[in-house]
Design a protein around this nucleic acid. Structure first.
Length: 373
DNA sequence: ATTGCTAAAGGG
């Protein structure tokens, strides 16, 4: 079995600053003060006259208004969220918001740990199937690949009992979520078990805060997967949330691959109908068991395995709370004082409004010297 | 372009 993987088609010049449009560039400068902002916006040739207070460039006014009236979903041009957006949000909502607003490079050391984790995941994936590169140009093509993967993976799960990197999507508490389940398999007892692998740089068990985030992540997967097999994720809902064009012709490489897999489809809509039928009529159960396995990156030692108690009410309540931020119904929050240690490794600690305004007591972070007696 | 848009997860 071969899983299709879409190819990135990014040109070299589109990877740097040049792909930022005016409005995005302004977002990038969000936290600069107005003077600096105006200065960097003025053209080199006309540096003598900075815009007057009430004669600002139109784009700047738009930017100001954007921040005032648009929800984060609108500001970041998002139609749906990734599961990991929400689990990152549960680590620190404000850090997650800064990452969206001011996406920067992560520190090389951190990137290395993530890359190691990604390769370990890839190695595990390759144990179960091959990868095929398929070039895609439209988002319809990209979703078609996702659908083809689902169509080939469901029969594999039912016949061989195990699949990895299974795509899931669906509405949870009004928000459309997209994610990928690490692994699904049937246990000896015939229960459907989800396992999420987490690799760690240091050979120690995760702190409670880390576990909490990971539990939330796998709980979201269960919400989405269960909704899919129960027929609650309809083709119409997918189309409505993603704004995909079901009738747009698929690219030739995608069509060729679909044919190779034995699917006679001409459009994304056709594929979507097939996916709906396959997901709902393949006798897939809801997920019975949620497990998280923590392993040490260097030695592959199992550090611990947690079985997650699925608390549906609690999970949905949490999603509702996080949605209030995304819909612009409330400001993003930083961490509680007890978790201020998270700020130590945060890229945004120096500009963080939460820290500045005392959401985290400064004394908890930088103990003041006791007053002289 | 007075515009449009998504690879999810990767670890702390």
């Amino acid at each position: 079995m071969a899983e299709a993987r879409e190819e990135e088609t990014v040109s070299a010049e589109a990877s740097g600053f040049s792909d930022l449009s005016d409005s995005e560039f302004l977002e990038f400068l969000d936290l600069e003060d107005d003077e600096k902002l105006c200065a960097s916006l003025s053209k080199p040739g006309s540096s003598s006259e900075l815009p007057e207070k009430d004669d600002k460039p139109l784009s700047l006014q738009n930017w100001k208004r954007e921040l005032d009236v648009l929800s984060p979903m609108e500001r970041f041009h998002l139609k749906y969220l990734y599961v990991t957006d929400l689990s990152t949000q549960s680590w620190c909502e404000l850090q997650m918001a800064y990452e969206k607003e001011l996406p920067g490079d992560l520190k090389p050391e951190k990137a290395a740990v993530l890359n190691t984790g990604a390769s370990i995941h890839l190695a595990r994936e390759l144990e179960l199937h091959d990868l095929v590169t398929i070039s895609v140009t439209t988002k319809e093509d990209a979703w078609a690949i996702k659908f083809l993967n689902i169509l080939s993976m469901i029969p594999t799960l039912q016949s061989e009992g195990r699949i990895r990197e299974f795509p899931v999507f669906g509405e949870v508490e009004g928000m459309f979520l997209v994610g990928v389940i690490d692994e699904l398999h049937y246990t000896a007892k015939g229960e459907l078990e989800l396992t999420e692998l987490k690799t760690r740089r240091r050979a120690m068990l995760p702190l409670a805060a880390q576990k909490k985030k990971d539990c939330f992540q796998v709980s979201l997967y269960k919400c989405i997967f269960d909704a899919m097999v129960q027929g609650k994720v309809t083709p119409a809902s997918l189309i409505q949330h993603t704004k995909l064009c079901p009738d747009k012709p698929l690219g030739p490489s995608v069509l060729r691959h679909a044919q190779q897999e034995g699917f006679s489809v001409k459009s994304l809509g056709d594929l979507l109908e097939l996916v709906f039928l396959s997901v709902t009529l393949s006798d897939l159960p809801v997920i019975d068991i949620l497990k998280i396995e923590y392993i040490h990156q260097e030695t592959a030692t199992v550090l611990g395995t947690d079985t997650v108690a699925f608390e549906e009410k609690e999970v949905r309540g949490k999603v509702q709370h996080y949605m209030a931020y995304w819909m612009g119904h409330r400001e993003p929050q930083g961490v509680d004082v007890e978790e201020a240690w998270k700020c130590r490794t945060c890229n945004y600690k120096n500009i963080c409004e939460w820290r500045r305004s005392g959401g985290v007591l400064s004394s908890a972070l930088e103990p003041q010297h006791k007053k002289a007696k």
